[in-house]
Write a protein that binds this DNA or RNA. Structure first.
Lengths: 252, 252
DNA sequence: CGAGGCTTTGATACATCTCAAGGAGAGTGG
DNA sequence: CCACTCTCCTTGAGATGTATCAAAGCCTCG
């Protein structure tokens, strides 16, 4: 793990979170912000470190948890991409989101006390498991942990509103690419070259479009010189123009 | 305030939460479930009671908070109905939700540390104000409060997914009426007779439909004998059939 | 090399939006 | 008590963005 962590970023283009140690917790971990440089004492950090459990790897298609499983833990993605989805009685799928390394899944299970969706690996995935009762107990002792949990929960509320509006296919796709680029960038990857871990069908489902529409819009974006598409590799050629398209969704 | 509180319900058809006292906190209050009959000791209850601040009344159209205001508190609706909404740069409105007595607003402001939307009174509204720093501090001392906050936050994540799918106008409207009926019922009002505090335009905006479409679908529901509409008063005539229509959205 | 899934492209259908006009209440002022 | 106005609601006709259906190309993997 020879990355330079002094600036808080990962240099290598491989989305594997490092393991950290008692004093430098996984730098891309969900609670990294809490632990690194915010004055959490060593004992607290040690407790959090003891709490976490590395699970995986999962192969593409395997489930981290399933709808209806009893809620016991939240998970932080360490590497790979996770898709959360509902499958209704008729077998139709509804994709709720895609989760990159450092992001938490399972927060929507606290209230119903059971996971309300499936979490499925899109590629090879490793996760950190946080027992929720233990985490909640720790949160009563360490206000920073509680605050971080509140923040994460609050953020998810707002993020869901993003795709809820009645936006055009162009706006949706532009916003999707821009935010995905930003999320990768936050993790130290180049902003303008992104790899789509999900199929066109999954993208389309998430964006509430038909797969054919996604295909057509991507092609049009490429014809207009906004992006360059090669299968699941997308290069953003004109970030500003793409952002302009996405503005109605992203500006809020 | 002559209601019989022994069964936990309000008898009068007036959506005003009672004030409670130190030991019987507002029965429709957001934290009612925490305080009533869950073994929270008197001191804790007293602390929570001291924390809360009654604000209002607001007249229809007045804002409880506005987009960009610094986040200092969350609010529980005591009476009336609150609409949360975004207004984009071009002045177009995007309705995020409607909030009945007992429901919390402002939870989506924790992360950005500023309210990301307006909260506007649709009729005469009274609210309880909870200073968030104080509430968070209290939550570290009283695990039940912390747990309730986690639950509320978690619930809001899931609820937002409701209208996110690509459902038909019929499904959306049916689900809207059914859930609104359930929410009123939870507060002790008749399930089958509900008053819409919001305009058709607001409903339409929230459901991502045109106002004309809402009008047409309501009429069709009425022609089919599912409901009876009289302005903003709606009677649900065939709850089972309406629920059947909403099933694709509500079953999850 | 074959099979299956994923992706692309084209032609058509349809649900909902948009545009337009009229109607129904609720206040307001004469 | 009656116009008057304003906003909200309803209804109709036509426009349109996206879904659906269909078929072919492509890639991957066994």
């Amino acid at each position: 793990m020879g990355q330079d962590r002094s600036d808080g970023r990962i240099a290598a283009p491989n989305p594997i979170a490092d393991d950290g140690d008692e004093y430098r917790f996984c730098s891309t971990c969900a609670f990294g912000a809490v632990c690194v440089g915010r004055g959490v004492d060593k004992i607290a950090l040690h407790d959090l470190h003891c709490l976490v459990e590395h699970v995986g790897p999962y192969r593409a298609g395997e489930a981290i948890f399933r709808t209806g499983d009893a809620f016991t833990a939240i998970y932080a993605v360490r590497s790979g991409t996770v898709k959360t989805r509902l499958v209704d009685l008729e077998g139709r799928e509804l994709v709720l989101g895609f989760h990159l390394p450092g992001e938490l899944i399972g927060l929507n299970a606290i209230h119903p006390e059971a996971y309300p969706c499936d979490a499925v690996a899109l590629d090879t995935v490793e996760v950190c498991r946080f027992s929720f009762p233990a985490l909640a107990t720790l949160a009563t002792r360490i206000p920073e942990i509680q605050q971080e949990l509140f923040r994460r929960l609050s953020k998810d509320i707002g993020d869901n509103a993003l795709l809820a509006g009645d936006y055009s296919a162009d706006e949706r796709l532009a916003a999707f690419l821009v935010t995905l680029g930003q999320r990768y960038a936050d993790r130290g990857f180049p902003v303008n070259a992104l790899h789509l871990a999900m199929s066109r069908g999954d993208m389309a489902n998430y964006l509430r479009l038909a797969a054919e529409t996604v295909s057509r819009v991507l092609r049009r974006f490429q014809d207009h010189g906004l992006i360059r598409v090669d299968g699941r590799e997308v290069a953003i050629v004109k970030p500003a123009e793409l952002y302009a398209l996405a503005r109605p969704i992203l500006q809020r």
